[in-house]
Amino acid sequence: MNLATAFLVIISVVLVNNFIFSRFLGYCPYIGVSTEKKSALGMGLAVIFVMTLASVVCWLVYHFFLYPSESNLFYKIFGGNQGVENFDLRYLMTLVFILVIAALVQFVEMVIQKIAPPLYAALGIYLPLITTNCAVLGVTILNIEGVTINGTALGYGHPMSLLFGVLQGFGAGCGFLLALMLMAGIRERLALQNIPKPFRGMPIAFLTAALLAIAFMGFAGLVK
């Protein structure tokens, strides 16, 4: 993967295939936390952090424990004369990934609380929410399944798939932050408007998101 492809991965996941506006991942926190800019920023930064970390950890778990290959640790330890295909644990992916993410979020929370109290004060309340953010589990699964960019299938099996995973995780977090900040800015103003009663709250938020999604459709075609 050269620098141009790396750049395209970021562009693709931030603008073209934005997790909020075109993939529909992470809506609960998106609608829940986008009422003011300050909390949106905290949530967005926490998501970038956890997504990047989860991408790395889940890739490593998949590579060393689940995928049947020479580097599978179970095969190395218990392999003996058995074939490598007996160590295919890929069907456990969903179960293992969600546990890894839950444990990771808990761990990150404890570490931040210990070594960086100001950061914890800023991100603290958002971290536990991230466990059930489907964008995090979604990006780790997409890292394995892969995305095709300019004809190259970048996923597990590609020699640079770990780097791709990190870029995609980081980019998806940035895309989420962008979407969240745009929405928070609009909703802060919407709160002051006289909106017809049935549209107050959620419905108007969704209509706003629809307009933003139409705007984001303009980026389609930047990356094939």
């Binding site: 506006f21 075109s22 529909f24 009663k197 049935p198 549209f199 959620m202 419905p203 108007i204 938020a205 969704f206 209509l207 998101a209 629809a210 307009l211 999604a213 139409i214 459709m217």
Partner: peptide, 18 residues
């Protein structure tokens, strides 16, 4: 397309509120 999903969902929710 995605925009249509958001639009429909917002309108359905508003109708349910009414």
């Amino acid at each position: 397309l995605p925009a249509g999903a958001l639009l429909t969902f917002g309108l359905v929710m508003a109708v349910r509120n009414v």
